[in-house]
Design a protein around this nucleic acid. Structure first.
Length: 712
DNA sequence: CATAGCCGCCTTTTT
DNA sequence: GGCGGCTATG
């Protein structure tokens, strides 16, 4: 796209030079939006605004880092606060912890921690966990938090059976978080929003601190973020937001598109700048994107004005199954690389992470360089989580989730019964779990041996605490060795490939990098930072590798060559989004985001068959494909299908043992479900379906060729 | 109390 | 298909 020396267009210029007050930048894809924000920051600084008076909010930490770098490259002194909403909230909450009634050493719970915590809450609230899964309850709680509704308010507002249960579990969950001195992702936003709303002193201080606020990707802000932004500029109104309603793809996690659509209502004097020229993609690609997004009804029409001359190509391909699709894509990519295209200019997008697998295996087979953009994977590995749990306890002993994880990891003879005894003691004496561990000598029900083990554990943690002020990477090393994790992972069967030790080493290296770059490195800050690490943050644009990522992670990026795979009904749009028109339109926007990442060549593909959850199934082209100005390739009959078709045509009908072995009423046996009787048989050749009522009670619909039934 | 093996649950996207 | 948790066994 445009480099920094290119001139700005009049519209871009207008946005960059806008002085005080509210500014809305409605920017289409590839319109230079990020560049405008960067220029605007530089411009403010050049016109005399102190850098630290500027706060810019980006969607990911990676985007923040890039923006920081670009501002620096423009010769402007750095010092502007550029970060994500979540990072900003951590800073604010740490500084004003006493006003927010929290402990500044708070742990941040990721989704795995949240789940454990929610399970405890469900137990505590005594809820029938059959119909209320932790996942569903967490989603409900998350949505309440995003809308700044606390447990008490919700309790009074809610009616109905389900809402009452949610209210109860919400309260229990929140209480657990409090006891553990922990915040989940939503708390970071909610606590900050409430602090800014209810505490005038804090609000005034931050309004003085940040004289200018800029928010990128404003279409994906949720209500809490909206309130934070509004409070941050309550006294001066210097707010600049930029975004594109057509690229709103986070409704499912609370993003409220009306934040951007109604911006002019919030700030009636706002200046609005539209950026409709597209400097990124070829006219062909834009035509595809435009036709697609035009199918969304709930939308303000916006143009995509091509600037680049025609080049490259747009292709739609159909493959037999995900294996062949992966190979087909790999072949194309190999061709490109042979033609001299750098692998870093190539990306493959897909709807769900599970789809990376076939691609990855294929890349490995073909010895092609690739990177899967999935950063949090590393931090969810067992050994990494174990080490981090130790570190969390060192900073925040109240974090019971972390404590329970490591108290017997590696095994040190402190089992469930012992833990229960200590917990009961803690409960009756009003102590935290860790405090009770420290007072273990007073717990009569424990044997001397158990007391000794617990004392040794507490001693070890206290010993770590003494080393905590030193370097983080050194501390990780120390914990790894002295906790016994090292010998645990090295011992016999655990060290199948000693990848655990390697991963720990990588963690130590990453911590060393952190120490070099952080303004004020500390263990607490380190832990809070890595909690906010996102998938997209792991993307490294500098290496010679093809990037594989979800469509969501692709937001904000651009590549010369883009492959979008698995564009099939049920996948894109995803079956879980098929219930409402709003969700369907969001899926369309997601596809739109993917398409508009492409600069020159765009390859879209789908398959005739796909393995879903281990089942090889017929796949149907996405309805979105019929909205594109592209011909669907003639669906070549597969060799398998071929032979079947011939068979069907030539020999009009001949019962085959393989194909029609079952009649209604036939007694059959299934490996897993046992005996059953055939209820129905639907003859569909290779795809025949059989309905069996099993003795155990359940009735199952099975694909015949996978059911593996035997006649009895 | 530790370990292995099995069963059952969930399974979109993510800060 | 994959993981976490539960149970049975040593």
């Amino acid at each position: 796209m445009q480099n920094t020396t290119t001139q700005l267009t009049p519209s871009q210029e207008k946005a960059v030079n806008h002085k005080d007050g509210a500014l809305l930048v409605l920017a289409g894809p590839g319109s230079g939006k990020t560049r405008v924000i960067t220029h605007r920051i530089a411009n403010l600084i050049n016109s005399g605004v102190a850098p630290y008076k500027i706060c810019a909010i980006t969607f990911t930490n990676k985007a923040a880092g890039q923006m920081n770098q670009r501002v620096a490259e423009m010769g402007t002194s750095t010092g502007a606060h550029i970060s994500t909403f979540h990072s900003l909230c951590v800073r604010i909450l740490r500084k004003y912890a006493q006003f927010a009634a929290i402990d500044s050493k708070f742990s941040i719970y990721d989704s795995a921690d949240q789940k454990r915590c929610m399970k405890q809450a469900i137990k505590k609230a005594d809820i029938d966990s059959k119909s209320f899964t932790p996942g569903k309850l967490l989603a409900a709680v998350s949505s309440l938090k995003n809308n700044l509704i606390d447990p008490e308010t919700f309790k009074t507002q809610s009616d109905g059976f389900y809402a009452a249960k949610v209210a109860k579990v919400y309260r229990a969950y929140q209480q657990l978080l409090n006891e553990n001195a922990s915040l989940d992702f939503d708390d970071l936003l909610m606590k900050t929003a409430l602090l800014l709303r209810d505490n005038q002193q804090v609000r005034d201080e931050l309004n003085d601190r940040f004289m200018y606020l800029l928010v990128d990707e404003y279409q994906d802000t949720n209500h809490a973020q909206y309130c934070i932004a509004k409070s941050l500029v309550a006294n001066h109104g210097n707010i600049c937001v930029a975004g594109d309603p057509d690229q709103s793809i986070y409704r499912w996690r609370g993003a409220d598109i009306t934040n951007i659509l109604a911006f002019e209502k919030d700030w009636p004097d706002a200046t609005v700048v539209k950026l409709e020229e597209n400097f990124r993609s070829t006219p062909d690609i834009l035509s595809v994107a435009d036709k697609l997004i035009a199918a969304n009804k709930n939308r303000k029409p916006k143009s995509l004005i091509p600037v680049r001359p025609p080049a490259g190509k747009v292709e739609l391909a159909c493959f037999e199954d995900e294996q062949e699709e992966a190979q087909g894509v790999a072949d194309k990519i190999n061709n490109l690389i042979r033609q001299g295209v750098s692998a870093r200019n190539i990306a493959v997008f897909y709807r769900v992470n599970a789809m990376s697998r076939a691609m990855e295996e294929c890349f490995v087979r073909n010895q092609m360089p690739y990177q899967i953009v999935r950063g949090v994977e590393f931090y969810s590995r067992k050994e990494i989580r174990d080490i981090l749990a130790y570190l969390k306890i060192i900073v925040n002993p109240a974090d019971e989730i972390a404590l329970l994880r490591i108290i017997n990891t590696p095994a040190r003879g402190i089992g469930k019964v012992t833990i229960d005894k200590v917990r009961r003691y803690a409960l009756t004496h009003g102590l935290s779990f860790y405090q009770a561990l420290a007072k273990v000598h007073a717990i009569d029900s424990l044997s001397q041996a158990h007391k000794g083990r617990i004392t040794a554990f507490v001693k070890m943690i206290e010993n770590f605490k003494k080393a905590a002020p030193d370097s983080v990477s050194q501390l990780i090393k120390k914990v790894f060795v002295e906790s016994g994790l090292q010998s645990f992972f090295n011992s016999g069967k655990e060290s199948d490939d000693n990848s655990a030790a390697e991963n720990i080493n990588e963690l130590i290296n990453a911590a060393a990098v952190y120490e070099r770059h952080a303004e004020q490195p500390s263990l607490m800050d380190y832990l809070q930072q890595i909690s906010l690490f996102s998938d997209a943050d792991s993307y490294d644009p500098t290496t010679e590798r093809v990037a594989l990522m979800t469509l969501h992670a692709a937001k904000g990026l651009e590549f010369e060559n883009v492959f979008i795979i698995g564009v099939e009904d049920g996948l894109l749009p995803h079956e879980r989004s098929a219930e409402s028109d709003d969700e369907l339109e969001e899926e369309r926007r997601l596809f739109f985001v993917g398409i508009t990442r492409a600069e020159t060549n765009l390859h879209i593909s789908y398959t005739r068959y796909r393995t879903v959850r281990g089942q090889y199934r017929r796949a149907v082209p996405s309805p979105f494909l019929y909205e594109l100005p592209l011909e669907l390739p003639h669906q070549q009959p597969s060799s398998r299908e071929d032979s079947y078709d011939d068979f069907d045509d030539d020999i009009s009908y001949e019962p085959d043992e393989e194909v029609v072995p079952f009649t209604k009423g036939q007694l059959v046996k299934h490996k897993k479900f046992g005996l059953g009787r055939v209820e129905q048989f639907i003859e569909m050749g290779q795809n025949s379906v059989i309905v069996v009522k099993f003795k155990a009670g359940q009735t199952k619909t099975l694909m015949l060729k996978y059911a593996n039934l035997t006649k009895v």
